[in-house]
Design a binder for these strands. Structure first.
Lengths: 342, 342
DNA sequence: CCTTGGCACTCCACCCCGTTGAGTGCCAGT
DNA sequence: ACTGGCACTCAACGGGGTGGAGTGCCAAGG
């Protein structure tokens, strides 16, 4: 049994047609309807034979005897991998992306606008991960005395993120000492990658006199904490209302899906498994109970080539993959360009 | 026709019973079932008369002839205003609030934990507004030179919020001048209410020499912009999955509700109309198409007595008002206490 | 005058069942 | 290798019958 035999050209055409029709109508597609809508030059009976073979191989499935066929996850996978091309956005959509994202004032705003934009053009649930700190570099560390013995530590990164922490020094520290520590700290870490900061500061407090060593140690500990901070892995979401529009695509309710989406951990895991380029995960591939029945189209993004985070859309497995892939790619590219400008 | 006549004691008892039963079972309640479940010492026939009167007055409603009665929005309103008391939380719930909120590390974290907590104990959609800037005071303004001619402005408020902006000075500014401006700026605005800052800085740039006046003007303009910033009015939400659990309480789908919830503007308006204390808005009172069918229980919160923002829960009109009111009150109070400690 | 038991009536929810139509698998013929 | 024909299957739909919960009204009793 050769590969040619198992997946000949016409069989693939049939699968492609089934996916397209099912995505368009949400109705199992039968042999007759299929030959009517697509001009394949053969009769329904022939199609039926092809369908029987496709079903044997697990690409399509019959909800019940005497019903039409529906693609399986495996069928969608084949469609995405070999039977479809990314559909580029229309000029109007490109223009909309530009004008909508160009107005952003800071990082929060970029992320907020991106997620809403993505939800709007795809009509699905959009998910955007905040640019990760660990991949970015320190732009500046500021120490702000709040009281004699309490200091606010502000960490500013070149991706535009700002993290603040309050440090209790245990006792009064003169302003001039704070200024000196600030200067030496910045000399040490500015322009360094966050991932390198822990090693760079390993013995930082040791370089100070006994009277300062304690609070500087507390300070560096807090800074390191901020550097590896997990909340950095924040995620924003928009378009959950779209789930309700597609509620018929889910077994009986959207409840488990919404529930899964509220668990940021779940989404972070999904992104974690994604490649830096365009990734499609279909149905059960998501390995989360609430998300069988959903697919995710995701892409890494960042300043230029550096991937610092992911963004994507999530919807029923019955989704317009080429369109989603086009939209996600375009938005990821444009956000990357915006980040690079900052 | 006296007031006593229109709303005598027993009629109110009947209304209360109807609300309670309907909330518990989501089924129209009839006269017979009502006398069985509550020991009112009269017969179903008598109840029927009371019900007819209540219906005439618009407190209850019959889905169709020969069905039981369902409370109207007006009925719920009367129930909330006169027939129920806030139900205090159990000791276990109080303990859960404490242990869950005490771990928070900064303002973002407090808000994030609060909203998840509220969603969990009420099993509804929880909404929390970020503490508003305008009601709070300046703790510190920091100027961080990024390049010779660009400065990062960081505004820190006593509610713990941090806003940052980048200012382009048009030309190089010596570090020492920046330090001087920083000192004079802080002398002017620290500990002042944000709402007073614009007047305080009205002629600030005028006090500098011609060579600095331009960039200081740009700086103050940016600062004022941050002070009146609208994004401060951020809202976070959790528990939208609970809507799906109550989907039978909505006409045909939760779509319009989810849609309304995604419009932050809508939620801000709701909060805007709320009182500083506990507020309940029922069904059509929300004056938003998607939110007829939902009620909101909200409360102001802040450090001590100062109300700086609102939080609340939103669910079907058929909700456990006393319980929701208890939970919202307790959480608002505890968050207020946490904010006061910071 | 208020309350109550009785009674006739209404109408939704449910079940059963026959019909319809789309779709299938198989087979014999080209 | 493809096609037309054929018998079969099964979900979806609609109609009719029934049960039950609930009502409004009324006349009798405290």
């Amino acid at each position: 049994m050769t590969t040619e035999n198992r997946l000949d050209e016409r069989k693939l055409d049939v699968l492609r047609a089934i996916v397209q029709d099912y995505v368009a109508t949400r109705e199992p597609v039968g042999s007759k309807a299929l030959v009517e809508r697509h001009n394949i030059g053969v009769s329904p009976a022939t199609i039926r034979n092809e369908m029987a073979a496709l079903e044997d191989e697990g690409y399509i499935h019959q909800p019940h005897t005497s019903a039409g066929r529906v693609p399986t996850d495996k069928g969608y996978r084949l469609f995405v991998d070999r039977l479809s091309q990314v559909k580029p956005l229309s000029a109007a959509e490109r223009r909309a992306i530009h004008s909508f994202l160009d107005g952003a004032v800071d990082l929060d705003d970029v992320v907020a606008r991106t997620v809403r934009l993505l939800a709007q053009i795809t009509q699905q649930v959009a998910v955007v991960q905040y640019p990760s700190l660990t991949r970015s570099a320190v732009r500046h560390v500021e120490l702000v005395p709040l009281t004699a013995s309490r200091i606010m530590l502000v960490l500013i990164t070149d991706t535009g993120r700002v993290e603040q922490r309050i440090v209790d020094c245990g006792g009064p520290v003169p302003e001039s000492t704070v200024a000196e520590v600030r200067a030496r700290l910045n000399a040490e870490v500015v322009a360094q990658h966050l991932s390198d900061v822990p090693t760079l500061l390993a013995d930082f407090s040791g370089r100070f006199g006994a009277e300062d060593r304690t609070w500087v140690a507390a300070l560096t500990a807090t800074l390191l904490d901020a550097v590896v901070e997990q909340r950095e892995e924040r995620i924003v979401m928009a378009g959950t209302a779209n789930l309700a529009r597609f509620r018929h695509d889910f077994p009986d309710t959207v409840y488990p899906v919404l529930e899964a989406l509220e668990e940021q951990v779940v989404l972070l895991r999904l992104f974690g498994e994604a490649q830096s380029g365009l990734t499609v995960r279909i149905g059960h591939e998501n390995a989360h109970e609430g998300l069988v029945g959903t697919s995710m189209v995701a892409s890494g993004y960042g300043r230029g080539e550096d991937v610092v985070a992911h963004l994507g859309v999530l919807g029923p497995t019955r989704m317009d993959y080429p369109g989603m892939m086009g939209a996600v790619t375009a938005v990821a590219a444009y956000v990357g360009r915006i980040l690079a400008e900052t």
